[in-house]
Design a protein around this nucleic acid. Structure first.
Lengths: 335, 335
DNA sequence: CTGAAAGCGCTTACAG
DNA sequence: CTGAAAGCGCTTACAG
């Protein structure tokens, strides 16, 4: 069995309190420090974080709940978040909830019973009962990708509305007037914000046509199917705007199967910039989300909240997306 | 603050021991059970797993260390593993080590200080000092994707050698004689096993030619670059075998850029079957690893080991890969 | 079936 | 600077 602080105390002839102080960086008599150091080495002593956590009610662990472990948008952010936290000596406990809020509720209970110091939840749209308990115990909660309805807390989102508004603007600039859209379900924050931004721009140019908008479920399969439907029903479409990564992939897959050349036959602006965007020919023009910035901002906020010790969370951080120019948009302006 | 077992005891007029027993499923006087139940409800009592963990030295948590959180091979396995563990009331603490064994060592120390009941490590090739401490404290370790050199423990791998042997067999059957290979670095278990299997088959048919083998680093970028080099140096190649997912993606990207038609100009067999394989036209023929089976096997093994309480781990599980037929291999047999 | 008490490994006011 | 002691929230032999 591992040595405890008591063993170290015995071996070095001081009290356990003194060993504890040494471990926590207090200064003590040089002589004692030496002895303790040696004892630690020979006994192969390692601190027990569980016991520590029980004492001062901090575990230096942060729960992170994402929808799916294979969603590269979320895992990219988590990678940066983990880096940030690790440097500051926090562990991250990562779980997924597979789009099931009951499961999410259970995992939040679970994390709470493990005394996490804070929790980060991705795209949670509305309040869950367990969140009230977090609030009662002043455990910070950070919402990523979507605010939580009826629950005030810190939120990190991107400028979805504006991003879409500008993406459609680019297409219009290039002379496109028949623009198809693959949006996401409107029960989600990113779903309606991204769509509203697009619609606003279309309306400004009197190009809005609800028939050219399909609502998918954010997965590749739906991007694939809806693109096929959309083009069959509206063969006049010259440009496509797809509102998340996996639906963008599905759309590209559909275009390839339909033997539509990008951008000669059809232009496309997608969302997010991961491995796949490189593989697709030609290089896609996309709205890129600042995943590193998101991860680090989340880390910063949660550690601030933890240190503050108060549940006074109502910071709203809106990060800017970036427009990455590829070769998937054709200029239709002839002159 | 949350209520404790002591508050519940007071509120229901029994001792804390009795409440503890109730919580652990012992049967007691009906009257007392009722009272305790009520007290729990009105006080909103939740168990403190940290305190529990400190007492009986089990935390019901399992550490899992993978190379990268954005590696879909690993996260797919972890998804199934998490499901398996969650059903059995274990939490998973997931971390990445970014291909840096120092970092891995640190994270293993960290997990140990958090008293995980067991640990799962992906593609760790050789022993790390901290593993001896795990062994001393009888904390089970499961190695996935590669055995750990000089350290006997439970291992879950796939039949890499055989998979490659058969993949090359398929190409030869179809009449290919100039076969290029994008392998992975030979310091890794999967690297040399997959390559050896391929070479063995090639040698049996006297088709082995070291000039047609490139060694990459398992990332998309290297698959991309090496495919270009390979084809430039060996324009006679009619078929390609790429030995992991991301290098397969890179290879496809290179072929697209080179305007090589698959399979007319060049046939390809890749590795692993995730989102991307669907998007590529034509559908790729690949060696698929049984990710669900791997995840569940790992879960089964580690829980067995934990229950056994002994560090007598030397089980070697070899799982079978599956050959998924796509349309990326052309038949060259003319007759 | 249940209570009193010791203990899991650590921290921290209180004295000195 | 340091020791003795109480306590974090729970469990579990020991009696009864």
């Amino acid at each position: 069995m591992s040595a405890t602080i008591r063993d170290v105390a015995k071996a070095s002839g001081v009290s356990v309190g003194t060993v504890s102080r040494y471990l926590n960086g207090h200064v003590l008599k040089k002589e004692n420090m030496k002895k303790i150091e040696e004892a630690i080495k020979t006994l192969n002593f390692e601190e027990n974080m569980i016991a520590k956590g029980l004492r001062h009610k901090k575990t230096r662990s942060i729960g992170v709940l994402i929808n799916s472990l294979t969603d590269v948008f979320a895992t990219s952010i988590v990678t940066y978040l983990e880096n940030y936290l690790e440097e500051r000596n926090y562990t991250l406990i990562l779980g997924d909830y597979q789009n099931d809020y009951n499961r999410l509720e259970k995992k939040l209970e679970f994390l709470k019973s493990r005394s996490v110091d804070g929790v980060v939840v991705f795209h949670l749209e509305h309040k869950l009962p367990v969140l009230e308990k977090y609030k009662e115990d002043k455990i910070p909660v950070i919402a990523v990708d979507s605010p939580i309805r009826d629950f005030v807390t810190d939120v990190v989102v991107v400028n979805n509305h504006k991003a879409s508004y500008e993406a459609i603007g680019k297409l219009i600039e290039k002379g496109h007037e028949e623009i198809g859209i693959i949006a996401g379900t409107q029960d989600r924050y990113i779903g309606y914000n991204r769509l509203e931004g697009a619609v606003k721009k279309l309306e400004e140019f009197h190009l809005y046509n609800p028939k050219m908008i399909k609502i998918g479920d954010y997965l590749q399969e739906s991007g694939y199917k809806l693109t096929k439907e959309l083009l069959q029903e509206n063969p006049e479409i010259t440009a496509l705007y797809t509102m998340n990564y996996y639906m963008t992939l599905g759309a590209v897959q559909a275009l390839l199967e339909l033997r539509k050349k990008i951008p000669e036959d059809i232009s496309i602006i997608g969302f997010d910039n991961f491995a796949l965007t490189d593989i697709i020919q030609p290089k896609l023009t996309v709205v890129a989300q600042p995943v590193q910035k998101i991860g680090e901002t989340v880390g910063k906020l949660i550690l601030e909240d933890i240190e503050a010790g108060e549940f006074t969370q109502n910071k709203q951080v809106h990060l800017e997306t970036e427009f990455l120019l590829g070769d998937s948009v054709e200029n239709r302006i002839t002159q």
